[in-house]
Design a protein around this nucleic acid. Structure first.
Lengths: 148, 148
DNA sequence: TTGCGGATTAGACTCATTCTAACCGAATGG
DNA sequence: CCATTCGGTTAGAATGAGTCTAATCCGCAA
């Protein structure tokens, strides 16, 4: 279930927020806790329902706000697949995503730096990219949901 | 402007449609023509307005239908960036997309097969992918719109 | 204690996309 | 020939993720 943040995670949250001039609030802690508790790339709606169990008054708008804030200060990444609802991912290491056709589940795929380099090298001169998104789409036999 | 399809392109359209049990219609020809005339990854709405100039009665729903049909029979690709409206691309060669932060314009980036191979190789056993999407996000000095 | 500013909230709104139900027109077959 | 069928087209309604708005809340500083 949803336990509290570890001291370490709480500091991580606090540092990132303060560094970009924002406050730690109970709502932000709750949302961040939900993200760390189950690393299954939840949608906003899923985060909303999970966080509500622990903070019943929480509103959907606030969940949108919190997640946007976290993206803004680099705490989490957005994951988009086709036009489905946006999912959120607290894994900060560079990685690709694999979306299972059958279950809809999203898995993180480690991305070695030499692969990133070879990708960057295919850009013709005049192109300068700071974000590269890579997503695979297919089938997998892996069924575990990679909770924390 | 929008000229007619070449004999070659018309055959390409006809073959793909017939092969998947569907008909060539004036609307489909118009939409396909628009896609080939200006390869700037238009949105549905842009396709709609361009096609209307040549076929005023055309409806938006039909444009959606045509594009979906084309995707289904492998004539065009969908391009999604974040949650912006879907764009369409008649370039069938494997390629990545580069989205210019400033202009919003999308450029095709050639994708050498060894890069594809190295990407496929980072998938752990148990993962089998048929589609890989790669998109860069950044700035470019290239201003031409790569029309046909 | 008052006032300020950021955060939160409910609900209205937007807008891309999908759905629905009616209609059209070419091909089929009686 | 005419009726039927069936894929395609159409306008407009419905959906739903996400955004906006205006009111309220709350901690802190004057």
């Amino acid at each position: 279930m949803i336990q509290n943040l570890t001291e370490h995670d709480r500091e991580h949250l606090q540092e990132a927020l303060v560094k970009s001039g924002q406050k730690v609030t109970p709502q932000r802690e709750a949302v961040f806790t939900v993200l760390l508790a189950q690393r299954d790339h939840p949608t906003v709606d899923e985060v909303f329902h999970r966080a509500r169990e622990v903070m019943p008054g929480l509103s959907l708008a606030t969940v949108y706000n919190c997640l946007e804030t976290f993206v803004g200060c680099g705490l989490v990444r957005q994951v988009n697949h086709e036009r489905e609802s946006t999912r959120y991912c607290p894994n900060l290491a560079p990685h690709a995503h694999f979306r299972d056709k059958e279950t809809g589940r999203v898995h993180d795929i480690e991305l070695p730096s030499e692969v990133i380099k070879s990708l960057r090298s295919i850009l013709p001169p005049g192109f300068d990219s700071d974000v590269i998104e890579i997503s695979f789409h297919g089938r997998s036999q892996i069924k575990e949901s990679s909770s924390n």
